[in-house]
């Protein structure tokens, strides 16, 4: 088992290195930090532009390979992910936003999994009954609705509610606004902020778990061993709970492990709609500012998350499912 995990890990590290390097070259080819200065009025002198770009190691007059090796040397020797065009180090900027993203996404991911899996089980047992059809239709609607549309419509509805009641029940921007020391009020304030983005993220997130869990459970419900369990005299509910459900949860577990990656980048739209200063919003800023090092740093971080999820999925699958041969 240990040997298997180590082999996967080494493979993932190599994969990550190639992917990040590819992203670096792609970003260098398509993003143009020089244009930030060219549009300024009065335009700074050429030499001064070159100097600022050189300081951040993003000058397009330096060959891209030289820049790449400088950048790589910085990371390997001092864990320095480079500077933005404004000479701000990007690594601390990314690190400081991780906590907002986690706050936002952790609650909604847990809720999505619970709601999605229970709905999947509920509808699978009632296949083709009206509950199944109705919930399927609702989930399909959420599946196809763009996150931006959902977020903005919820904002519109909330503003109507706030106006109707005359008080600010829900906040539509940020994660905190309470400054005092009272813990109770601080929590209430946090809840008032977090509830709307959470609703949006749950609506988008639960659908996948619902539809896949339903399919998996339907697959196992018709398996021979469930029929045997029924023949032994178990009721349908017992047979499903003790035999079908357990096996059908294996692919869902893998799904959950993989969702770790989307946790950090899946909320770009929601963060923009609700003005939450998380990783997603920072990424949009880096793209708009032609911040090559910043964009690559975020891509690298999400790559690490993807592969951490993949590794977790490998381990969970091997642990849960004895049929997977490790060698």
């Amino acid at each position: 088992m240990i040997k298997y995990i180590i082999r996967r890990l080494v493979n993932y590290v190599i994969m990550l290195f190639v992917a990040i390097s590819m992203t670096y070259f792609l970003a260098s080819a398509f993003m143009d930090p020089r244009s930030n200065y060219m549009s300024r009025n009065p335009r700074p002198p050429e030499a001064s532009i070159d100097r600022s770009l050189d300081l951040a190691n993003i000058n397009d007059k330096t060959p891209v390979l030289v820049r790449y090796f400088n950048w790589l040397k910085g990371i390997v020797t001092e864990w320095n992910w480079g500077l933005s065009p404004d000479q701000e180090p990007v690594a601390p900027a990314v690190a400081s936003r991780i906590s907002s993203s986690v706050q936002l996404v952790a609650i909604s991911t847990v809720l999505s999994i619970i709601i999605g899996v229970s709905l999947g089980v509920y509808t699978a047992i009632r296949q083709y009954k009206w509950q199944d059809r109705a919930l399927n239709a609702v989930s399909t609607l959420f599946l196809v609705t763009p996150a931006a549309v959902l977020g903005l419509l919820i904002v519109l509805g909330t503003i109507a509610i706030n106006n109707a009641t005359g008080t600010r029940i829900f906040y539509v921007t940020g994660l905190h606004s309470y400054e005092g020391g009272n813990i109770g009020l601080a929590i209430l304030d946090f809840l008032q902020h977090i509830i709307l983005p959470t609703i949006v993220l749950v609506c988008i997130g639960y659908v996948n778990y619902h539809l896949t869990q339903r399919t998996y459970l339907l697959d196992t419900m018709n398996a021979d061993y469930v029929r045997t369990a029924r023949a032994k005299g178990l009721t349908l509910n017992q047979a499903i709970r003790k035999h079908a459900l357990r096996t059908s949860l294996i692919p869902t577990t893998t799904n959950i492990a993989f969702s770790i990656a989307s946790i950090f980048t899946g909320a770009v739209i929601t963060e923009t709609v609700f003005a939450i200063n998380g990783l997603g919003r920072y990424f949009v800023t880096t793209i708009q500012d032609n911040d090559i090092n910043g964009a690559v740093c975020i891509a690298a971080f999400s790559g690490v998350c993807t592969l951490a999820g993949a590794l977790l999925a490998d381990i969970l699958a091997a642990w849960l499912d004895p049929r997977i041969r490790l060698n």
Partner: peptide, 13 residues
Amino acid sequence: TIPSFLLVAMIVR
């Protein structure tokens, strides 16, 4: 490995 959304955004920018 790298979410495609990020890469598309870089190109389209």
